[in-house]
Every structure is written in C-alpha cells, then in structure tokens.
C-alpha cells in the first residue's frame, strides 16, 4: 500500500508547501523586529504581512504577471519557450490605450471595444510568432525573442516614446473598487485563471499541449497535427499577454513602451518555481498561480521585513533556486542542458 507521504505526493505539493512556508516565515521576522523594539507581538495575529490588506496588495501586484505567466505556461508545457511577452504586453497595452481614447475614452461608450481589440492584437502577434516558429522552422526561443523586439519597436513607433494615460474612472475601477477587500482586477484575474484551467483540463487543445510536451514524435505518430497545436498555443499565449497588458494599464493607468519591461524574468521564474518543468509535459496553470504568488510574496515580504534594496535581488535569486530544487522532480530527467 502506498503511504500518504510518497515522494510523488510531496513533489506535487512542494510549491504549495514553499508558499505556505514563506507566508509563515516573514511574520517571524516581523515578530523578532517587534521584540527588538520591546513591543508586544503575538505571532501571526499581529502580523501586518499576513493582514488581509497586505494580501490584497500582493494580489494587485501579482495580477498582470499572473496573466503573462499563464500564457507562457502553455508554451513551456509543450517544451518550447516564448520570450515575446515583453514586446507583446507593450504593444497590446499601447494599442488598447490608443483605441480606448480614440473610441471615446470611457467604458460606457464604444471604447469597451478596445478590450477585445487588445486581446486580438495579442492573438495576432502570437499567431505570427507560431507561424514563424513552425513554418520557418526557427527555434521558439529565437523566433519569440525576435518577435518580442519587433513588438517593443512597434510600441515605440506608436507612442514615439510618450506615455498614454487611461484615466476613465470606470476602467480604473479595476483597481479602485473593492469587493470583499479585494479590487475587481483580482476577480477578473481569477475568472481568467479559471478559463485557462478549463482549457487546460477540459478541452482537446489542453490535452494536446501535454501530448506535444510529453513526447512530440509519439504525438505526431498518433496523428496529431503538432504544428497546429503549437500555433494555437502561441496564439493562446498572445491572448494571455494581452490580458497582462490590460491589467498593467488598469494597475497604473499608463501605457508606454516599457509597460512590458520585467515581465520576462518574473513570468518564466514563476512558471518554473510553480513546478512546471522546462522540458515540457509536466505542470499546469494552477502550478503557475502558486509560482506567481511565491515570487510576489517574496518581493513584498522582503520590503515588509525591511531588507535593504541592494540585498533583495540576491535573496530573490537564491530563493528561486531553492524553490526550484524543492518543487521540481529532476530525478526523472536523464540530463539537464
């Protein structure tokens, strides 16, 4: 009989355990800080870090990155990589902002059309990405990286280097209106996560991602049109990046050429930390949710316990390695390259 604590169960739940560990460890620092100042402090109960308000702050910070990370999850599941997210997020954000302002500048007008438009732009970039990768037979790494640069350049062409502001109170309600302590954008993100989870687990496309990632030759030999799956995967990722762009604009009210900056590192780190294997076939969107939360809990926690900024990136790097060691099953791969 298999015991409850098998190695497989542990590995499966390792990212969640890492997240829980982090959520419990930062309050310890808070407590010792309070004691050092001679203040009364009851562990967890007096924690500012574990307060609802701070959890909402972490959720707000994590929302755009979660959208982007969901997209790249599918690509990594297929054993490919997509590095076009920074350019795609910038283009969709800037395209959305211009269309939104041009169509009326408030959600109460035809300007709402800018939202599907942004997702369409994302899908179109993903489509090109996929076609370049599959038809021209360029490795996804290079094809998507190049498309990312094209995207950043195109965003620059649109803006000429300026920032575009979206100030419609209805759109900004994503950030400013709260239901049960959390702003609307968090619920939108949750709904989108649910949709992606549905695609991953309940559709043929979702299962095909695993088939391609688990063994491409086998999938092709079984009659699966691998190229089609790949192109659809990149399109789906593009739509996710479009959502990321929308959420980023919703969060700070500004679209600019650098809106997409930093998303590459954070999203890929989050996917890997969450336990999705870079060689494909293992993991999924719920892993990515946990991974994104791990990264943003670390980021937030380091400031909350007062770590100096020059140490933070080093600590983040080390924690990422530790999280990957704990949360991925590296015994199953014969070699790592």
């Amino acid at each position: 009989m298999q015991g409850f604590m098998t190695r497989e169960t542990l590995l499966k739940w390792a990212p969640v355990l890492v997240l829980i560990f982090l959520l419990l460890v930062f309050p310890i620092f808070e407590m010792t800080n309070a004691w050092a100042k001679g203040k009364e402090h009851i562990y967890l109960l007096d924690s500012r870090f574990l307060s609802i308000r701070n959890l909402a702050r972490i959720a707000i910070s994590a929302t755009p990155a979660l959208m982007v990370a969901l997209g790249v999850t599918f690509i990594i599941l297929m054993g490919s990589i997509d590095l076009s997210m920074e350019g795609t997020v910038s283009v969709t954000a800037v395209g959305f902002a211009y269309a939104f302002l041009w169509l009326g500048g408030t959600l109460a007008s035809w300007a709402w059309l800018a939202i599907p438009l942004a997702l369409l732009i994302g899908a179109a970039i993903g489509l090109i990405n996929g076609i370049v990768h599959v038809k021209l037979r360029i490795p996804s790494f290079m094809a998507s990286l190049a498309m990312g640069f094209v995207g950043t350049g195109f965003a620059l062409l649109l803006t000429g280097g300026d920032r575009v502001r979206v100030e419609d109170p209805l759109f900004r309600a994503l950030l400013t209106v709260r239901w049960m302590n959390f702003p609307i954008m968090v619920y939108v993100a949750a709904a989108f996560l649910l949709l992606m989870w549905f695609i991953q687990t309940r559709t043929k496309l979702g299962r095909n991602f695993y088939a391609v990632g688990g063994g491409e030759e086998l999938a092709a030999a079984s009659g699966l049109n691998v190229n089609r799956v790949r192109i659809l995967g990149f399109m789906l990722a593009g739509i996710c990046y479009g959502m990321g762009g929308l959420m980023a604009v919703g969060k700070i009210g500004i679209a600019e050429t650098v809106t997409g900056a930093n998303f590459m590192f954070i999203s890929i780190t989050a996917v890997v930390v969450g336990g999705t294997a870079l060689w494909g076939g293992i993991g999924g969107v719920l892993n990515t949710l946990v991974g994104v939360l791990i990264v943003f809990v670390i980021n937030n926690g380091m400031v909350v316990i007062g770590l100096p900024s020059y140490i933070q990136s080093a600590v983040l790097g080390i924690l990422v390695i530790v999280a990957v060691v704990l949360s991925t099953d590296r015994r199953s791969v014969s070699f790592v390259k």
Partner: peptide, 14 residues
C-alpha cells in the same frame, strides 16, 4: 513606475 507601485504598497503594509 510599476516597481515604485509595488514597493509603495509594501511600505504601506510595513
């Protein structure tokens, strides 16, 4: 801008 927003919200917690 985005990094500033994140650090600021962590400051608010701390």
């Amino acid at each position: 801008t985005q990094k500033a927003a994140e650090i600021m919200s962590s400051y608010l917690t701390r």
